[in-house]
Design a protein around this nucleic acid. Sequence first.
DNA 1: ATGTCTGCAAAGCTTTTGCACTGAT
DNA 2: ATCAGTGCAAAAGCTTTGCAGACAT
Lengths: 157, 157
Amino acid sequence: MGCTETKTVVKQILSDYLQRKGYRETPERYAILQEIYSTDSHFDVETLYIHMKNNGYQVSRATIYNNIDLLCECGLVIRHQFGKKNSLYEKAYECKQHDHLICTRCGKVTEFCDPRIQEIINSAKRNSNFTISHHSLYIYGICAECRNEIEKVPITL
Amino acid sequence: MGCTETKTVVKQILSDYLQRKGYRETPERYAILQEIYSTDSHFDVETLYIHMKNNGYQVSRATIYNNIDLLCECGLVIRHQFGKKNSLYEKAYECKQHDHLICTRCGKVTEFCDPRIQEIINSAKRNSNFTISHHSLYIYGICAECRNEIEKVPITL
DNA sequence: ATGTCTGCAAAGCTTTTGCACTGAT
DNA sequence: ATCAGTGCAAAAGCTTTGCAGACAT
């Protein structure tokens, strides 16, 4: 999981960013980055914390919270807030642009791609005074499995 | 603020929904709906609670939380989670489709319209097994004011 | 009369903060 | 030798829950 070359590149990006900002290169920062780039799905802070513990890294929750913000700022990680649950994150480097379909019943998240979103972003860029950094398109609905379950139960809950 | 005809229609929608689901028609539910449809901007639960208090309604926070979920379910209200702050809501009936530009520095939210988003949703509908109910497109960046402020300060903070 | 809905306060969760210590520069 | 960064635990939000009483049906 996670190709070696990508990991080398993202470490370099983090290193450059830290130096440019005058931040320190702590082992915790690289450990968190390493762990995130070994994961392929969306994750929350608690899950990342547990995974790191299990993999023998000793990093506190506070440090994860601090550094995941930093990783978002330098574009290596993206934060999502699907539904009203806690924040979920995913790695952002060399991941082809994609958006999300979210089942409002079971919480399942599916990714999809549509290049036309770029045109919308470009228009927004032209028409606004914003310097655009990133976007999130979430489409909410009911997935096939949930629809089947609902149809099995004739009584409206 | 808020036209009378719209308010009549949304009350009817709520009434129909409550009856269809077998829920009760409490004065609190209509008071919350009334208050929301008198507001034109995004709001959080605390602000709504304060406004209702100031306007002489006696409704608890718990009741607002319960019923704002209900109003989301019946499509009269939409929940947003811009950035990592708390949930913001807005009325959803007879509001032309729009999306959001969010300044990641000051939190300012600007609305914009782009009909092409509908084509993307339609494709997603065709290509997935989801029954789509709604969507959110958030574009993040730095607004003009914040950019000016940043440029005034030559030192990277 | 029945059982849902409300209000209040307490509890629950995620995230942030304060502070003493560690370690990168 | 500094002082940013870390870890821990406490604190701080926002939101949910439990329970007794109110009220829509």
